[in-house]
């Protein structure tokens, strides 16, 4: 491999790195902001949260009723704190999945055939796990 090819390899690698780093940063910042907004709203909605120890016992020992995307979005539309927190958590979970998806495209544009296959394979396995998970759970 000659020197200019090596240099362009390095540039291509840098493009991927900066893009993924930026994507993760945006995901982290957005989900953090949404989660904090929702948590603060929850406390504003129910002032007993500041004072009632009995309420705490209930809160940490029951399953969460918001367990599909539609219900979460409905709750967000009503501007409820817990729905907004769940939206933030879903954005957080989606960030690494989106990262795999985007890198498959970047490798495609860079004509890096092996890594297009690898990243698409990972993405397909992730989708399969979501399908199995939500069907079986």
């Amino acid at each position: 491999m000659n020197r200019s090819a090596a240099a362009s390899d390095d540039e291509r690698a840098r493009t991927v790195e900066l893009l993924i780093s930026r994507l993760l940063r945006i995901g982290v910042f957005t989900s953090f902001a949404v989660i904090v907004l929702g948590a603060v709203l929850s406390f504003v909605e129910r002032s007993e949260l500041l004072t009632s120890p009995d309420l705490l016992v209930q809160l940490i020992n029951r399953p969460n009723p918001l367990r599909n995307v539609t219900d979460v979005l409905r709750s967000v539309a009503r501007f409820e704190g817990r729905g907004i927190v769940m939206l933030g958590l879903l954005l957080l979970i989606a960030t690494p999945v989106l990262r795999v998806f985007v890198s498959a495209f970047v490798f495609f544009y860079q004509r890096d055939r092996i890594f297009v296959l690898i990243t698409s394979g990972v993405f397909a396995l992730l989708m399969l796990s979501f399908l199995i998970g939500t069907a079986g759970g």
């Binding site: 989660i35 904090v36 929702g38 948590a39 929850s42 809160l59 940490i60 399953p63 969460n64 009723p65 918001l66 367990r67 599909n68 704190g81 817990r82 729905g83 927190v85 769940m86 933030g88 958590l89 879903l90 979970i93 989606a94 690494p96 999945v97 990262r99 795999v100 990972v122 396995l125 992730l126 796990s129 979501f130 998970g133 939500t134 079986g136 759970g137």
Partner: peptide, 22 residues
């Protein structure tokens, strides 16, 4: 990525609670 692969199951079961996880 590994955890995201498992997260769907826990979310659908109602194990990810906004009050605790926030």
């Amino acid at each position: 990525v590994t955890a995201a692969a498992c997260a769907g199951v826990y979310f659908a079961r109602g194990d990810i609670d906004p009050f605790i996880a926030a």
